[in-house]
């Protein structure tokens, strides 16, 4: 029991650290309209701002709404895509982070949901170098539904 308690405390501590580590990531908040087909679409520009060339884009999503469909984000670069879904709506935990490989240039993010109902979400996103240093990151919304 004692070991389990310690283990849970350690997990909680590391989780908090993980959240804190990404506190410096870029955040953007959006809403998906009530239609089940609603999609938001972003362009992320990654560039070397002096920290080094881009190696990947980090992304995670959180659905801040309760009683709504699950929200997912797909990160796309060239011919590859990666997905992550917030498994639990309305809590304080982001989806697992994903690392979409790619060099300096443009990535695309698609945010969607599994059904009808408004979903308010936040994205954490940051371009990073090969040694996880944050580098130049700009975002532009192309589709808002």
């Amino acid at each position: 029991m004692k070991k389990t308690t310690l283990l849970l405390a350690a997990v909680a501590a590391f989780t908090a650290l993980g959240q804190a580590k990404m506190a410096n990531a870029h955040d953007i908040t959006g809403s998906l309209g009530s239609a089940a087909t609603a999609v938001d679409y972003y362009q992320v520009h990654c560039y070397d701002d002096g920290s080094g060339p881009t190696a990947h884009l980090y992304v995670a999503v959180i659905n801040k709404s309760t009683n709504t469909p699950k929200v997912s984000v797909q990160a796309i670069r060239d011919n590859t895509a990666t997905n992550t879904t917030d498994a639990v709506n309305g809590n304080a935990t982001y989806s697992p982070g994903i690392y979409q490989p790619g060099t300096d240039g443009f990535f695309y993010l698609t945010v969607d949901k599994t059904g009808a109902g408004v979903a308010n979400y936040s994205l954490q996103y940051h371009c990073q170098t090969s040694d996880q240093q944050h580098n130049g990151t700009d975002i532009f919304q192309l589709i808002n539904q």
Partner: peptide, 17 residues
């Protein structure tokens, strides 16, 4: 409610930046 929640979420994000 969805509009209120969205506004609150946006303000929270702005406050954290």
């Amino acid at each position: 409610e969805a509009v209120r929640a969205a506004a609150a979420s946006k303000l929270e994000t702005l406050a954290s930046q």
